[in-house]
Design a protein around this nucleic acid. Structure first.
Lengths: 236, 236
DNA sequence: ACAAAAGTGTTTGGAGTACACCCATGA
DNA sequence: TCATGGGTGTACTCCAAACACTTTTGT
C-alpha cells in the first residue's frame, strides 16, 4: 500500500497566483457555490489542496498550479504557514472540505505560496465546472473569501512586493515575452506603488544587462510605436 | 474533552535561536543521547515541539522558548516550513520521537522560526537533564544533527541575515541593554560578513536616531573606556 | 494638423567609501 | 612609558531625483 495517492488531511498548500494585465495586479480566485438549505451561498477561495502523503510541500503547490492552469515551470515561492486553530472553524468551510475530499477534516495548517504567471497565456482552467477568474488586488478587500484566505492574500502581496524589490528579475515572470519599457515601468510602478520618472526609468533599465533590445517595434498602436525588449537571464 | 493539552503529531515547530557573545554568532542546540543496542549515539537538535491542538503556530514556538529558557518576550519570526516526506525517515529520529511523545509518529511538517536572545542573560535551561549549549555558527556545519535540522539552521541563518539588513533594529535583540559602539560594530560586521571602517561606522550610527548615548562609560577595561549607548525604539 | 505616447541629458544632493592621527586608561 | 582600543574630519565617487522638449505615427 503506497502513500502515493493517499491524502494527508492535516496539511494543505494554498497558492496566491499573481498576474498583471497592464493596468493592475490581479489574483486568481476560484468561485465556490454552496447549496445551503434553501439558499445558494457564494464566495471565493484560493487555489489549494491538501497534500499527498508522498509529496513534498513544493511539489504539492506545483501540482495545484498544473492541475489548475495546465502550465509547468511557474515561479513559485513559499512565504508563510498559517495555523490558527480557528482558521478551519467555519462549519461551512469544513463541510465543503469534507464533501470535496471525502475525508474527515479537523484542524489544517496551510503552507502558502505565491506564484507569478503571464496573464496573457491562454489558460486552461480545469477546475471542473467551477469558475476561475482574475480579480484586481484592490477589489479583494471587499470580497467574500473562504477560510483565512483574505489574510493569506494580504500577506502574499506584501511578500511578493518585497521580493520584487530585492530580485527585480521576477518582474519578467508577469510580462509577455516581448514587452515595451512602458509596460515594464507600469508594472514596476504598480508593484512599488510609485510613479517613476520616464527618463530616470529608462536610465535604470539600460543598467539592467538582462533587458535586451530587439529589432522589433510594437504594431497596431495609434501613436509612435515603442521598441520591444526581451528578458535574457543569460546576460548575468 | 478539550483540545488544550492534546498533541497534534502531524505538525511541529522548531526554533533556531541566535545569540552573540561579542565574537561570533551562536545557535542554541540540545544534546541528544540515545542508547542503541550496545552503543551510545550522540547528536544535537534544535529546540522544538509538536503543537497542541488548541495552539496557534506562533504560540507553540513561543511556548518552546519559554519552556527552554524561562524567558518571555523573545523576538520570534516564522521563516519557512519544511515538509519533505523523508525528513522523518531516519528510524532513529522516529523512535526517539515516539519515546519522548508517547505517540505514534508518521510524517511531520515543521514550521521553523528564528529567535534572537541576549546571550548574557543567565538562562535557566529546563530541558530536563539534557544539556543545552551555545554553538558557534561556523562549527555547526561539521556537527551531527537530527532530522533536517542542519538545513533548517542554514536557511534560518540566511533569513535572519537578510532581516538584519532591512530591519537593523533587530541587532539590539542580541546586544546587552547597555553597549558600546564597538560591540555594535562587531555584531554588525559578524552579521554582514564585512569589516567596517571605524569612522564611517560611527557616522552611520549617529544617523540611527534610536541609538542614544548614555552618561556612562565602560568600567574595568584595560584601556580607554568607551561610552555606553542604549537602544530606544521610541526615538522613531 | 493634431492627438498620443516615445524617446532623450544635465544638474544637484545625499550616502557610502577611503584614509591617519591623537586621546584616555590600566598595567 | 607603553600597549590597547577609543574617538574624530575631509575629500571623492556614485546613485537617485528633479526637470522639458522633440520625434514618430495613426487618424
Amino acid at each position: 500500500m503506497s502513500d502515493d495517492k493517499i491524502y494527508n488531511p492535516h496539511i494543505s498548500v494554498d497558492c496566491v497566483v499573481f498576474g498583471f494585465d497592464g493596468e493592475a495586479l490581479k489574483v486568481l480566485l476560484i468561485e465556490r457555490n454552496i447549496q445551503e438549505q434553501n439558499e445558494l451561498y457564494n464566495d471565493k477561495k484560493l487555489p489549494g489542496s491538501i497534500i499527498f502523503n508522498s509529496e513534498d510541500l513544493d511539489e504539492a503547490a506545483s501540482r495545484v498550479l498544473t492541475e489548475l492552469t495546465g502550465l509547468k515551470n511557474i515561479y513559485l515561492s513559499q512565504f508563510q504557514s498559517f495555523g490558527n486553530p480557528k482558521r478551519t472553524s467555519n462549519p461551512r468551510d469544513v463541510l465543503w472540505l469534507e464533501r470535496t475530499t471525502q475525508l474527515k477534516i479537523g484542524r489544517i495548517v496551510t503552507v502558502a505560496y505565491v506564484a507569478l504567471i503571464k496573464i496573457n497565456r491562454k489558460l486552461v482552467f480545469n477546475a471542473d465546472g467551477t469558475s476561475v477568474n482574475w480579480y484586481d488586488i484592490k477589489d479583494v478587500a471587499g470580497m467574500n473569501l473562504a477560510f483565512d484566505h483574505a489574510e493569506i492574500i494580504k500577506k502574499g502581496l506584501a511578500y511578493i512586493r518585497h521580493r520584487f524589490d530585492i530580485e527585480p528579475n521576477l518582474l519578467f515572470e508577469l510580462l509577455p515575452r516581448k514587452f515595451t519599457i512602458s509596460q515594464l515601468r507600469s508594472l514596476y510602478d504598480t508593484v512599488h506603488q510609485t510613479r517613476s520618472d520616464v527618463r530616470n526609468f529608462q536610465k535604470k533599465i539600460t543598467q539592467w544587462s538582462y533587458v535586451v533590445a530587439l529589432d522589433e517595434i510594437e504594431i497596431g498602436v495609434p501613436h509612435r510605436a515603442a521598441r520591444l525588449y526581451k528578458f535574457d537571464i543569460k546576460n548575468k
